[in-house]
Amino acid sequence: MSRYAMVIDTRLCVGCMDCVVACKTENRVPEGYNRDWITEELRGVYPDVRLEIRSERCNHCDRPPCVSCCPTGASHVHRGGVVLVTHDQCIGCKACIAACPYDARFVHPDGYVDKCTFCIHRVEKGLKPACVSVCPTHCMHFGDLDDPQSDVSKLLASRPHHALIPESGARPHVFYLT
């Protein structure tokens, strides 16, 4: 049983947005919408300030609140813990959008709710997600948390890291190395 996760090295990410462009191209994300995006977080008081640049997306949580609130089962957990939306099962009630602590979902112009899929169509063919495959600084890593030899497991075991809003209880699967 695999549990996919993404690890992003914030010391290498420069916020070039190649990941965003790759995602939009690979998944034909409509103009004006984003499945992934760049966030810059500035903390502290000058001169003691710290800037963290992150590539963010759906966190494919272990306890996804978007799945538990879906009235039709359109939002579901796929193999590897990837959270997906079955388009022709989605009624567009938007409860999942309200339930997501990361605001990672949106209503596609065709009416159904859309979000990052970890490029599962590529992963199942043995490829990396589009965003990971194009990163020019190689700051993005994708793999199986249940495999101790995977890149993601080794990085999380050896480097300090954090996830976003862990207090929401959703147990996110996108980690940021610091």
Partner: peptide
Amino acid sequence: MLELTTTRHNPEIDPGMHIW
């Protein structure tokens, strides 16, 4: 100080959620 800047601009989500 905490300042967050994002490139995300999904309709009805950014800058503030208004899905309903």
